[in-house]
């Protein structure tokens, strides 16, 4: 699953945001969910340039107006956790997500990218030990016609039968010619004269 850079329609970003917020890492942490929703909505409303540690702390994380980002690393720490949570979502819970939301290191403004193929649901092959799904969802192209192994066997048997009939017919024709019999084609030609 690769990412295509460029403008992403806001509606698709909002759809992706709502899906991301329903994934386990964000359900476990309301604080990270509020952080993500705040920065995405600010960016979409054209206020991305004003996203600072102070605005995140006071408007998303419930800190008071005395919050001092030069002495309190809370927002920096939560931003790091938010990046890890997003990585986890796109690695393990990306079913149906068509837009990637990322917060590049060194800032708080989100970046959006269209994923070229939304992954299909991971085939459930549970780990016998932990029961977890494989870490990376695999997107597989679907064949135009899906055949079961039984169906494939029937088609192979049918083709083999046709080939056998053709071989028998060819053998009979060749043996008839070798026996010196008149060829039907020549007989027709003689009659035609």
């Amino acid at each position: 699953m690769s990412e295509i850079e460029g403008e992403v329609p806001p509606g698709r970003v909002v759809d992706a945001l709502e899906l991301v917020l329903q994934t386990p890492p964000f359900l476990r942490s309301p604080k990270l969910a509020r952080f993500l929703r705040f920065v995405v909505e600010e960016e979409l409303s054209g206020q991305g340039a004003t996203i600072k540690a102070y605005t995140i702390a006071t408007q998303a994380l419930g800190r008071g107006p005395d919050f001092d980002p030069s002495l309190d690393p809370s927002v920096r720490v939560e931003a790091g956790r938010l990046r890890r949570a997003l990585e986890d979502v796109y690695a393990r819970h990306a079913e149906g997500l068509a837009v990637r939301i990322a917060i590049p290191v060194g800032g708080y403004r989100p970046r959006f990218g269209v994923l070229d193929a939304a992954p299909v649901a991971v085939e459930a092959v549970p780990d016998p030990v932990s029961g977890d799904l494989p870490p990376v969802p695999v997107s597989r192209p679907r064949p135009a016609v899906a055949l079961s192994p039984r169906g494939e066997g029937a088609i192979i048997a049918l083709l083999a039968g046709i080939l056998l009939v053709l071989c028998i017919d060819l053998g009979l024709t060749v043996s008839a010619r070798l026996a010196g019999g008149p060829s039907p084609t020549r007989e027709i030609a003689v009659r035609g004269r």
């Binding site: 600072k52 030069s70 690393p73």
Partner: peptide
């Protein structure tokens, strides 16, 4: 490794600090 990544992230914020 994740702990070290979190440390690097925290120390690479966009604003100057006196932390």
């Amino acid at each position: 490794r994740q702990a070290r990544t979190l440390i690097v992230d925290a120390m690479t914020g966009p604003e100057a600090t006196r932390i």
